[in-house]
């Protein structure tokens, strides 16, 4: 955007403000359609206004950020910092590059990040704080809060790092970054594969009865074929439904809720 209107320089204060705005909103506008996108728009809206002086550019830029976005909120800081740097450098022309960068990185980062932030960390701290708690001792919980405060500042720092060197890092790494993303995908997909049977739960309480013999469908038939058969099938069906783009995410959600209610009414699925 080499027009005569010179853009104000984005200061470190602007970056910190954007980081804190995004960190507050993160999942607090979470919805099934574009997930964290509104939080990204809210977080970046002030700093992007400084970059895009023309209303049309500003609108185009924010509309771009309204596209589906979801990753571990802690990792997102790095991506968003770098996205701001890209828009600062090339203005609205960078729109497609920003979008490609965000969608390319969010999946792998979510795989690794969710495991670290939402599984590993709470599991370790929760075990410690929980066991101490059973004895009426709040020490573990206090340590947990202190660590959270440390990570809060670390995350602001991540945003700044993304802004100052995220892009340099990414361009400099080149092929090496691909290797990193691929490795992250490998770990991420292993974890996602494990999530399907451990998070998605379906149970058929029906039984076949012939004379004295009862045959529970779930434990004696389905589980014998394959454990977590139904969650696997459901994942495949929903995956294909989303890929086909024939239904919106909200419609798919209602479909699942409707299916659960109907199956519950007829006793096909149990809690």
């Amino acid at each position: 955007m080499n027009n005569t209107e010179k853009t104000d320089a984005v200061t470190k204060k602007d970056i910190r403000k954007a980081a804190i705005r995004y960190m507050f909103m993160a999942c607090n506008t979470f919805n099934y359609e574009n997930q964290q996108a509104p939080a990204v728009v809210y977080g970046l809206s002030k700093v992007l206004r400084k970059i895009h002086k023309k209303d049309d550019d500003y609108k185009a830029s924010l509309n771009n950020h309204f596209n589906y976005f979801n990753t571990t909120t802690w990792m997102a800081n790095l991506l968003l910092g770098a996205s701001v740097a890209m828009e600062e450098k090339d203005g609205i022309k960078s729109k497609d590059a920003v979008q490609a960068f965000k969608t390319g990185m969010m999946g792998p980062l979510a795989g690794v990040g969710d495991t670290l932030v939402w599984v590993l960390y709470p599991t370790i701290m929760g075990s410690i704080a929980g066991y101490m708690g059973l004895q009426g001792n709040p020490t573990g919980a206090i340590i947990w809060v202190l660590l959270n405060i440390f990570f809060f500042f670390f995350r602001v720092k991540l945003f700044e790092m993304g802004h100052s060197s995220g892009l340099k890092l990414i361009t400099a790494l080149g092929d090496r970054l691909n290797i990193f993303t691929e490795s992250a995908s490998i770990m991420g997909l292993t974890v996602v594969g494990a999530l399907i049977p451990s998070v998605v739960k379906m149970n058929i309480p029906l039984e076949f009865k012939t004379g004295k013999v009862t045959l529970p469908i779930q434990t004696e038939i389905l589980d014998k074929i394959m454990p977590a058969l139904l969650p696997a099938v459901l994942t495949y069906v929903v995956y294909k439904l989303i890929a086909s783009k024939k239904l919106s995410i909200t419609q798919i959600i209602f479909l699942v809720i409707g299916l659960a209610l109907v199956c519950s009414f007829f006793g096909i699925l149990g809690v």
Binding site: A110, S185, I196, V200, V238, Y239, I242
Partner: peptide, 12 residues
């Protein structure tokens, strides 16, 4: 949760 997982898979 299947919807979240299936969405995540679209990007991997």
């Amino acid at each position: 949760p299947v919807v979240g997982i299936a969405l995540l898979l679209q990007f991997m």
